[in-house]
């Protein structure tokens, strides 16, 4: 099945391609899904008790029925594939980062500046995730780093199988950084392990300093929080210490780097963090 949205309608297909390349549609495990958009509830019965939610198409079906115990985690397929990815990345000595944030936090600018500053010392490969357009991949392509764009169509997050397919399109050298720029969304990507070594959440000072408590799941699963656009601090009502305190409440282990990808302020600390991860591996 399709792990993204499952829908086979035009515009919903996941597309993976490099800049200047023809389309490579994402393989959906050979299963087609038919979606009509009839959401009629006639003849159906909904019960919304406090603890149980039941949904009945046919209220009586006891004849010849038997129970099968399943007890399987619903995200297991994604998690297994993520572990498979992780093993592949580790075997190649790669350091893989999953960069997550709201739209417009400056992920792509951060990547452009990082690659340009460090590409004489390290090799980088990039997977870009967006619903539509090659814009971000084209920007990364200009830095010279190999890049693949995943367009998720109507999908709201990347998943492990998309990363698995995208990596096949990238010739990633051993000992590289693989930077995965997730779809700009602070909710859904939190649930989907991609096989990354580190999850980096980016917030910019033009957002509210209460982002960590508003979107706790994302901050709870992140290893590092980058606070971007610090050059704009004099003009906005953003309290860096308050944002850190909120994030610490949710995840006492999270670390922080404040920086401005635009002016370069604080970027050295980020570069040192990256360098340490390449030296120490994924420990």
């Amino acid at each position: 099945m399709c792990d993204t949205c499952g829908c086979g309608q035009p515009g919903d297909e996941v597309i993976i391609r490099k800049p200047g390349e023809h389309n490579h549609a994402y393989v959906h495990d050979g299963v087609k899904h038919n979606h009509s958009h009839d959401h009629s509830h006639s003849g159906e019965e909904h019960t919304h008790a406090e603890h149980d939610h039941t949904h009945h198409h046919h209220p009586d079906h006891t004849h010849g029925a038997r129970e099968i115990v399943v007890e399987e985690n619903i995200l297991q397929k994604n998690d297994l594939l993520a572990e498979h990815n992780r093993g592949f990345f580790e075997a190649k000595g790669m350091v893989t980062l999953n960069l997550v944030s709201s739209p417009g936090s400056g992920k792509t600018t951060l990547l452009e500046k990082t690659i340009s500053a460090l590409n004489n010392r390290f090799t980088f490969a990039v997977i870009e995730g967006d619903q539509q357009t090659m814009n971000d991949a084209n920007r990364i392509n200009a830095t010279g780093a190999p890049v693949v764009q995943i367009n998720t169509g109507n999908g709201c997050h990347l998943d492990a199988s998309m990363i698995n397919s995208a990596v096949m399109h990238l010739d990633v050298p051993d000992k590289s950084f693989l930077m995965i720029e997730n779809v700009g969304n602070l909710v859904c990507p939190a649930l989907f392990d991609l096989g990354e070594a580190f999850r980096v959440v980016i917030i910019s000072v033009t957002e509210g300093d209460d982002k960590p408590v508003k979107y706790p799941t994302m901050f709870q699963t992140a290893d590092l929080c980058l606070i971007n656009k610090t050059d704009l601090l004099p003009y906005v009502d953003f309290d860096v210490e308050k944002a850190k305190e909120y994030a610490h409440r949710i995840n006492p282990q999270i670390s922080f780097i404040s920086l401005s990808a635009q002016t370069g302020e604080g970027m050295d600390e980020w570069f040192t963090w990256l360098e340490e991860k390449m030296v120490t591996g994924t420990d």
């Binding site: 399943v70 619903i74 995200l75 909710v187 649930l191």
Partner: peptide, 13 residues
Amino acid sequence: MHELSIAMSIVEI
């Protein structure tokens, strides 16, 4: 709307 992915995983399992 990641719930659709979750729903499809449930049906698949």
